[in-house]
Design a protein around this nucleic acid. Structure first.
Lengths: 220, 220, 220, 220
DNA sequence: GATGAATGAGGATTCATTCAT
DNA sequence: TATGAATGAATCCTCATTCAT
């Protein structure tokens, strides 16, 4: 029965026994796990109490480590927040890439984006994007974060514009319309409760239709 | 009948009219002016840099006074912020009262409220409502502020509901719809620039129609 | 019926009517009354909360005036305290002078002083002497106050010494004995309560005998 | 039998014995030493200048550290003072326990307590009990401190009472007598100078006899 | 990798005191 | 004489960050 599997286990054991240093890969993995844990705890506290009111001590305490230990994973408190923002934007971008992967009318894409973004807004990292004021960041970090936000915003605009061009969406003031849509769905990040009556999916589906209701060109 | 006594009374009245009251009134007026100036400077800095990043020193400096002088007008930094919130809410409520003053359908009222709220969102005190995270407040102050926010929200809900009842608005998920509308117009507070291409009025007019576009019952 | 009384009233009225300035004497008297009121309120607060924890604002508030008004009667907070000390010492000295006025043995005088000092310790100004730490004073003021305390202490010592000389008191370590006596009666200032079970007089009578019990030369 | 495994275990044990425990113990010890140093410096300054006039900066300066470093050892200035009080009370209680350890008449015990308490009054932490006004403490801290004072006072009362019961002390007004005794010896904390002519022991011996002179039942 | 200790910077708040009115 | 306003000084405390171990 035993065979390769056993051999591999043995090898692993020997390596472990032979050296107190875990294999390189494992160590990096472990490190990433811890980094992730810091971010999850941090973002949750930032949302709960605000960035400035959250001390690194509190973050560390919830992780059962000490404050300076955090500096093994992040260079500064600001870097932690920037990472939180980045993770939120990454989630958003992941969806956008999926949408871009297959050809569709602007309207369909816009609706898909709304649906996706609503789901992002139900995640801590997503809410971070709209609930933690980026004024707390230094100018360069703020610029970087805003650049990310602008990038996402541009897809809303692009999808709307291309929808008008391909005839799936009525002509309208693009800028104002995008603001209305993003405003409505950003707001989800403020009122959504995991234990509420609507799931992220339901909210997304509803808003996808409702927010584009008066934009869609009627199919005849 | 009259005589010396009267004369003395007259003299007193004149003196009273001329002097002891005016100074008092003037004093109070001057005080209120200064209080107002503090609030205007403060809210502007809060929006610019965030509440926690704004020190009372900065506020005082811009007013050409010293930090402790602020304590003549406010008991604490928190009280300053609470007043800013209150002023924003007051502006909103003033419009609501005007709307309530004359009878109208729910749809008309809702549109009027959107228009009005958009204008509020172009004012510093209005933007304060949506751009300064109320987590910086102590629990009791926060409760008070949130109560005010809820009050305003309720009118959106009321107008929408009564619109459905009076037939001017189509049946819909009230809660979600109100969130969409308020989200969209709260967002104005984030992107509006006084030197932008659209006036407050134009934004309000556009949103009043656009955000209710798919809700309005078509007149036949 | 009326007569002198009326005339006097008239005269008073005329003076008042004729000039807004009250007669000089009356003004000084009024001023002293107010000064006294300030001191009474102040000492009471000092005892209640400690000197440093008592702000002039509190003093003023209890008098229904404003803080700067106090500066009409005193040059500084310190002066207020110094006056309180002085009044306490004055009370003590008044008794001492009465004792010195009539010839008596050292023992009788010492007992009289104990009785008297116990009563002083039941007054606010008296308690001030032992309950308000004179460290709060500037060096010169402190020296002045301490000089006063030393003066009083010296009479305890003098009476004791002369009692030994005149044979009414047994020989003993004067310094230590005086410390024991003054310690015991100063302590009254800490525990005495006006609503307690013993009157100032009873405490004084008891201590006068008890504290000199082992000192008195038995009469045969 | 044994071999490499054993050797490794031994090595581990030695390391454990030699290093991880010692550092820990040493750390804690060092920490306690520093905490103690803070308290000694603090109490000395409190006595010298009064609590409110002593800034944490001064305390830190005398220790050659910076102000915030103090917060590694104490949570607040108040906690420092409370600890000072506690140490003083601890000294007093230690003596009381020694007295309680062996059976004796009330008179003997009372005299022993007086002797002991006099010595406590020559220590900074002891003087702190009577020279630092506890009004500077917050209500809860004050209650705690006063509870400690009451505890000690009770032993004076108990010893006196039991002395009356066992016939070693004459009947007397217990409350007033205890006040006289404690007043006299608390006062030691105010006038004692380390460089004075009497040692703590001499003062204690003298007071132990003198303050109970008129109370003791004559042995026949 | 993790810790305890220490630091420097900064901020809100209090308060005695002064001054123009 | 009394007041409102303003000030400057001082204090406690918090916190991100660093460093030796």
């Amino acid at each position: 029965m035993s065979g390769d599997a056993d051999k591999r286990a043995d090898a692993a054991e020997m390596k472990l026994a032979a050296s107190p240093w875990k294999p390189f890969e494992a160590r990096r993995r472990e490190r990433d796990v811890k980094r992730g844990a810091v971010l999850r705890v941090a973002v949750s506290l930032f949302l709960e109490q605000g960035y400035d009111r959250t001390s690194l001590n509190e973050v560390a305490e919830r992780l059962n480590i000490t404050k300076p230990a955090l500096y093994n994973y992040f260079r500064s408190k600001e870097e932690i927040l920037v990472e939180c923002y980045r993770l939120g934007q990454e989630k958003a971008m992941a969806g956008i890439e999926r949408i871009l992967a297959k050809p569709d009318t602007g309207l369909v894409r816009l609706r898909a984006l709304i649906r996706h973004y609503c789901e992002v807004m139900t995640l801590d990292f997503g809410q971070c994007l709209v609930r933690v004021d980026d004024h707390v960041l230094s100018a360069p970090a703020r610029d970087q974060v805003r650049e990310g936000k602008r990038l996402i915003d541009r897809y809303f605009r692009d999808f709307l514009t291309s929808g008008i061009e391909d005839g799936s969406i009525k002509s309208c003031d693009v800028r104002l319309t995008v603001f209305a849509i993003t405003g409505a769905i950003n707001w989800v990040g403020h009122w959504y409760r995991a234990d509420g009556e609507m799931t992220a999916r339901e909210i997304g589906d509803t808003y996808a239709m409702q927010l584009t209701g008066s934009l869609a060109v009627e199919k005849t």
